[in-house]
Design a protein around this nucleic acid. Structure first.
Length: 323
DNA sequence: ACCCAGGTGCTGC
DNA sequence: GCAGCACATGGG
């Protein structure tokens, strides 16, 4: 068991930050969380200001430490923000304990392809359904006889729904669970294999990108390892269903490219409302990007973290409070 | 029925 | 390069 504190790693804030779609509050227990990443699962509990990661030192050192970006000093970065920017100052304060995760690459690629034109609760449901159909099944205790779930008929899926989680969050730790699908498993299902998961027009994107990923994975990981994020972004943009915004999310949430700044509808409305020049009508994405460069360009090396602070603050609803 | 959602692809200029 | 539109599906 690993111990830290809520000012360093705040599970509730990370859970609600919109960067991870498979982190849940455990049903009935307000301060217990389950984090899923690829084929791993971690329980986190909070007691007062103490935060406990329920894993042994070996698993922590080999995976979760890196996953939660534990070596970075977020307070030092927070201290660098311009105090005259009151919106950012408030967002930063509200984001204490928020961290930029290093999530599984393929999981982020598919999750953020799904994210387009969807609200976060709906994204979570789609990702979950995808895991149940194509992911590896794991026994609740962790002593897993993991099996491929190549199930094609609806009867098994229906059982999963019946005992499944309630609403968009809430999980039971004593239940069997599914890992994130491998690109092979999705590709093997064929273009029709994704039907019935409420993915809509994204079905084709997910199938094609899974196939492409199998071919370019090594080259892509190579670029990321070398921190050649320009090359990595170029490769991501060549995959079906990945544009500027989704590529930036992947670079930020899986690759540790802290200079990546995804511009989405929330960021556009923030730029419009908090930093805009009172133009009539909505800011165009192009002009919003321009504004982002002007306002946040100075935070070299951690502008992506700045993005997360204001994004999480915006979707938390606290932005509406006036002081 | 209408509008929007952590956008992207495609067309036409 | 940039605007304009179609694209499924669910929720207000």
């Amino acid at each position: 068991m690993i111990k830290t504190d809520v000012d360093f790693l705040n599970p509730g804030r990370i859970c609600d930050s919109g960067q991870i779609f498979r982190m849940y509050r455990v049903e009935g227990k307000a301060s217990v969380f389950l984090v899923y990443s690829g084929d791993r699962r971690l329980k986190i509990s909070v007691k007062g200001r103490d935060v406990f990661l329920h894993c042994d030192t070996a698993e922590y050192e080999s995976y979760w430490k890196h996953f939660f970006d534990m070596d970075r000093d977020y307070d030092a970065l927070a201290a660098k923000i311009d105090p005259s920017d009151s919106f950012l100052a408030r967002a930063c304060l509200a984001g204490k304990g928020l961290r930029i995760l290093r999530q599984d690459l393929f999981e982020m690629i598919i999750s953020f392809i799904i994210s387009q034109q969807k609200q976060i609760p709906s994204i979570r449901k789609c990702v979950e359904a995808l895991c149940e159909r194509f992911g590896q099944k794991h026994a609740p205790d962790g002593a897993d006889n993991a099996e491929r779930t190549g199930k094609k008929d609806a009867s098994e899926g229906a059982v999963g729904l019946e005992n499944g989680c309630v609403g968009d969050c809430g999980k039971k730790e004593e239940k069997a669970w599914y890992g994130f699908p491998s690109p092979h498993s999705i590709a093997a299902g064929g273009p029709e294999g994704l039907k019935g998961l409420s993915l809509g027009y994204r079905e084709r994107y997910i199938y094609e990108t899974s196939c492409i990923f199998l071919q370019v994975e090594d080259e892509l990981r190579d670029a990321i390892d070398k921190k050649d994020f320009v090359a990595a972004k170029k490769m991501l943009l060549s995959m079906t269903g990945i544009g500027e915004k989704v590529a930036d999310c992947i670079l930020l949430f899986a690759c540790g490219d802290l200079d990546s700044f995804p511009v989405d509808t929330h960021i556009i409305s923030i730029m419009d409302r908090e930093y805009g020049e009172k133009t009539d009508g909505r800011l165009s994405p192009a002009r919003a990007r321009e504004q982002v460069r002007e306002v946040f360009g100075k935070y070299k090396g951690f502008s992506g973290l700045v993005q997360q602070w204001i994004f999480a603050y915006e979707i938390s609803g606290q932005n509406k409070r006036k002081d």
